[in-house]
Amino acid sequence: MIDAHHHLWDLAMVHYPWLMAKGVERFFGNPFPIQRDYLLREFRADAAAHGVLASVHIQVGAADGLAEAKWVQSVADATPDWPMAQVVFCDLTAPDLDAQLDAFQTLSTVRGVRQIVGRAPGEDALTGTNDLLDNPRFLEGLRLAGQRNLSFDLQLIPELMDQTAQVLEQAPDTKIALCHAGSPHDRTRAGLVDWSTKLHSLSTLPQVTCKLSGLGMFQHNWTVDDVRPIIETCLDQFGPDRCMFGSNFPVDSLYSDYATVFQTHRAIVPQEMHNMVFEETASAFYELLA
């Protein structure tokens, strides 16, 4: 099986400004418990205990995206018995985008890029992240990524789905991985109905695949019944061939242990869909064999 969304960090090798900020509460909670090294050894011990034998590392806000990517490559090279692909950070609006992508694609583990469109309503309002959608260079960058056989990991909130779908329709050859089921942050009944309705704008696009990941970030004391409608809605809209499991560790370790996250997803996803959701979809999307 494959974990299609996790992070690693070695604080002596790569600087993560968001992670090491003191006294800053984030939308996902207080990062203090994870302000320490989180290495493949620890992640692998948790994941392998449940039959996960390969993974996809997702960029996580390093000060230098290329430095992070090179470090992840070194980790993968040092542990060839653990197949690992990676998604790197790259500003798709950068004037030297071609050169940046050239540098990333010298690394054999690189499969895609991520540039966050939306994190949470409050943080987005402060950072202006959503402005990417109005920038024509962002669309040009998406198209270039697809031309280079690079996917794009899309993190956003439901309020941005309709506008984002209009952008993605113009880049049909770029594979899109929707992170964290589209971040349904309003867990009221009305909020989930609104998320589900907006999700259709993305699920109807054939190049979009959905990650069942990060469901604890907006509801820390979640239960199986809380996440069940989210997972079931994603499976209904995308189908198992366009859904893949991701732990979002160590961020989701703030609320749950790996066993709880994994076993919850396994219990909710119907048995006949397990092979697709827990291995085959991710293997095909990221060209990664477990």
Rank of each mutant, 00 (worst) to 15 (best):
L139D: 05
I157W: 01
D124P: 00
M161V: 08
R143Y: 02
G122K: 12
S151I: 11
F104L: 12
A165L: 06
T93R: 03
L178K: 03
Q115R: 04
F89H: 14
M161Q: 14
G118T: 09
L142P: 02
T174Q: 01
A99Y: 13
V113D: 00
A177I: 01
G112E: 07
G128C: 06
R137F: 05
G112P: 11
L92Q: 06
C90L: 14
R148K: 10
I116L: 10
R114V: 04
N149C: 15
L132W: 04
M161H: 15
I116D: 01
V117S: 05
L160V: 04
L97G: 01
L142S: 02
T129S: 14
C90G: 08
D98L: 00
D102P: 08
D131L: 08
N135I: 00
P172M: 14
E169H: 08
A103M: 01
S151C: 12
A125I: 14
L160F: 08
Q100V: 00
L142V: 10
R143F: 03
E159I: 05
T174E: 00
G141I: 01
P95I: 01
Q147Y: 11
A120K: 08
P136I: 03
R148I: 01
P136H: 06
A94I: 06
N135R: 08
I176G: 00
L126H: 08
S108G: 09
A99S: 15
L101V: 00
L156M: 14
N135L: 10
T106G: 05
A103R: 06
L92K: 07
T174C: 06
Q100A: 03
L156G: 03
D96I: 07
I176R: 05
F152T: 02
